[in-house]
Design a protein around this nucleic acid. Structure first.
Length: 496
RNA sequence: GGUCCCAUCGUCUAGUGGCCUAGGACACCGCCCUCUCACGGCGGAGACACGGGUUCGACUCCCGUUGGGACUACCA
């Protein structure tokens, strides 16, 4: 039975991404849950940048992470730009702290200097693999004497600091969702705390920082479960009380094979943004990926999620997600937007396609706002807007193919006659409004003895070049008489 | 290989021993609405991995099997 009781002490939680790439969709889900827990409990949400890997550092990753979080509506109380009492919030600026704490463990005999070269380690690993032995450091330097250490240091050899894992016994760790897990010490090796470049490993840095920053709950991906005993061992070595741990189920690839990775399409939040997804849709989608409300409910604003969220309803099984649901959410939220708001959000996509100039005149924008309601329930992504409105903005459309203009079971000649009748009738219309156009065209169809559809379809294609469009009359009205006449004439000449 | 985690419709999930003939959502199929497409409405198909226990009674508890996954770096 899961039981999650908030301690009396204040909730301080952190999202601690590593700037080795753009904000990953899985990271975004973690950030969401962490933020939700903070907001739900009136706690503090901290953003901490774990930039301790100099080799994989990506220069604009921090910017991307901050932008993506903001785009999703997740604000942080402490961290980069926000400041805070327990900074700095970049681990690369806390090197002295890690050095101090790791040296402290060495002096207490709980950690030791290791001078093994990468080459030796590599060879050891290969031997272990070849003989099917469990992998792990062979503790070659664990029992070096003071003198040996001094000598190696004097020689200028590179060294790391390793944690001295007890040879016997076991460590019991607790996950708030999964309960207790036991790890025998024999299965743990003497992991590195401080690398030879003076940077800490994740294990050291996260434990030290979580303690120093007063973190109450660690929410992180399931891939960290097997490292948790190391972290408990560290808390114990320092004499600190460990926080509560909550491991989130990982995202599997849509084909169910392995972790979600770049091979399986978009993994970065920015990619979803560029693909025309709304932040409302993405967060709602992510919210229900691994968490479920007490009462069935599919639609959540961030505000509602803040109310409803609870750690104990997070699921534990790994999940492979399909984007179908995200597309559905996107459509739902697109339909909820006001015409003006949707127009604003679509504008960059239209400008990128060159359909609307940059900067956009107020007339252009007003026209867009007028068109939006016609296509609003027909697009499921912001990128769909360009195709949906192109014939409204273009002065001329590409001539439709002849076959396309001709309905089934109708001859080209008959189609031409119909379009000519329509052309003649529309030329007479002075009030080019939806209502008048509908009345005119319906009466015309009746007078020439044609079913409405037989008349409307060729007109639709002639004027838009598309067989699927918004309602014909509102479309004609929005395109305007001159262009409608011109496009009808173009179609008639194609048939002629 | 070793350690650990997980297991209900295709997908996300509800389910905490009798409320389950297993509920919802997306996707799928059909019908309705209709000038096309969409939206919307109605309906349909679709799952408790397997085997042992425990119990008057298991989707629910225990064990095993199988399957999936994570980790196994001077990466996080």
């Amino acid at each position: 039975m899961r039981c999650f009781c908030l301690n009396k002490k204040e909730v301080r939680v952190r999202f601690a991404p590593s700037p080795t790439g753009y904000l990953h969709i899985g990271g975004a889900r973690t950030a969401l849950y962490v933020w939700l827990l903070a907001r739900k409990t009136g706690g503090t949400f901290i953003l901490r940048i774990e930039d301790t890997d100099r080799n994989r550092f990506v220069p604009d990753a921090v910017e991307d992470i901050k932008n993506s979080l903001r785009w999703m509506g997740l604000d942080w109380d402490e961290g980069p730009e926000a400041g805070g009492e327990v900074g700095p919030y970049f681990q690369s600026e806390r090197l002295e702290i890690y050095k101090e704490y790791s040296e402290k463990l060495v002096s207490e005999g709980k950690a030791y200097y290791c001078f093994c070269t990468p080459e030796r380690l590599e060879e050891m690993r290969q031997n272990q693999e070849r003989s099917n032995q469990p992998s792990g450091y062979d503790r070659h330097c664990r029992d070096l004497t003071q003198e040996q250490v001094q000598e190696y240091k004097a020689q200028g050899l590179n060294y790391v600091i390793r944690f001295k894992v007890p040879l016997q016994g076991k460590t019991e760790v607790k996950d708030e969702l999964r309960g207790k897990m036991v790890f025998a010490h024999e299965t743990l090796d003497d992991f590195i705390l401080l690398k030879s470049d003076g940077y800490p490993t994740y294990h050291l840095a996260s434990v030290v920082d979580d303690h120093l920053m007063g973190i109450s709950h660690v929410i992180r991906g399931e891939e960290w479960i097997v490292s948790t005993p190391r972290h408990f061992l560290l808390y114990e070595a320092f004499g600190w009380e460990p926080p509560a741990f909550i491991h989130l189920p990982i995202f599997l690839s849509p084909d169910g094979k392995g972790k979600l990775s770049k091979r399986h399409g978009a993994t970065g939040v920015r990619e979803y943004r560029e693909k025309g997804y709304l932040p409302e849709a993405l967060t709602n989608f992510l919210l229900l990926l691994g968490w479920h409300p007490a009462e069935d409910q599919e639609l959540f604003t961030l505000e509602e999620a803040k109310e409803a969220f609870s750690v104990e309803r997070i699921s534990t099984s790994p999940l492979s997600f399909s984007l179908d649901k995200l597309d559905w959410y996107n459509g739902v939220y697109i339909r909820k937007l006001s015409a003006e708001e949707l127009a604003k959000r679509c504008l960059p996509f239209l400008q990128k396609e060159g359909l609307i100039p940059e900067p956009c005149s107020s007339q252009q924008f007003d026209y867009l706002v007028r068109i939006i309601p016609l296509v609003q329930e027909r697009i499921k992504s912001l990128t769909d807007i360009t195709k949906a409105v192109s014939y409204f903005f273009k002065e001329e459309i590409d001539p439709p193919a002849k076959e396309m203009l001709i309905p089934k079971k109708v001859t080209p000649e008959e189609t031409a006659v119909i379009l000519k009748e329509v052309l003649a009738a529309l030329k007479e219309v002075t009030d080019f409004s939806e209502a008048t156009l509908e009345k005119t065209l319906r009466e015309l169809a009746a007078s020439i003895g044609q079913k409405p559809g037989r008349v409307f379809m060729p007109v639709r294609i002639a004027v838009t070049g598309e067989s699927a469009t918004p309602g014909l009359f509102e479309t004609l009205a929005a395109i305007g008489k001159p262009r409608v006449i011109q496009r009808l004439e173009q179609a008639i000449s194609i048939l002629g």
